Amino acid sequence: MSSITFATTAPVTRLRITARGRRVLAALVALPVAGAIAFAAMSGGSALASGQVTTGSTFTTVTVQPGDTLWSIAGEVAPQADPRDVVAEISKLNLIDGGVISVGQHLAVPAQYASAGR
């Protein structure tokens, strides 16, 4: 039995890039980066350009006593207002989630409500 072997080697090709090709490749890489920077620059100032005027909030503090709830505090500091609105404002101002408060905690109460009580 005879065996036939073919000894062929594939020619090695090197990738050559011309000066024009390098410029095109650099432009293709730089284009998304420039687009991202432009997008960030245009959208970065949207909070300032919204036209909303922000003022510093004035508030007073109330110390939570044993047996106090947000509802009872709202009723004491603003008896003329809807307690649901007052509780919502106190919760929002103090970042209270779920209405859980503890004895001795100092709660900020918006000044518009705090003038009447406690």
Rank of each mutant, 00 (worst) to 15 (best):
S43M: 12
T63W: 02
E76C: 06
M42V: 15
I90Q: 02
G45R: 15
K92R: 15
G45P: 00
V62N: 04
G45L: 14
T54G: 00
D82V: 10
V64L: 04
A47C: 07
T60V: 12
T61R: 05
D85V: 11
I90F: 06
L48H: 15
A81M: 07
G75L: 08
T69K: 05
V53I: 14
D68G: 01
D85T: 09
P66W: 02
V62S: 02
T69M: 01
V77D: 02
A81V: 07
V64N: 02
A81S: 13
A40I: 09
Q52S: 11
F39R: 14
T63F: 01
N94D: 00
Q52P: 01
Q80E: 14
V53R: 07
L93Y: 14
F39G: 12
K92E: 15
S50F: 03
Q80F: 06
V64I: 01
G56W: 12
A78H: 01
A78W: 05
E76W: 11
A41I: 09
T58W: 13
S46E: 11
D85M: 09
V87K: 07
W71M: 06
G56E: 12
A38Y: 11
T61V: 08
A78F: 06
S43P: 00
Q80H: 13
K92A: 15
I90T: 02
A88K: 08
T58E: 15
A74N: 01
V86T: 04
I96C: 07
T58L: 13
F39Q: 10
T69P: 06
T54V: 12
I73C: 05
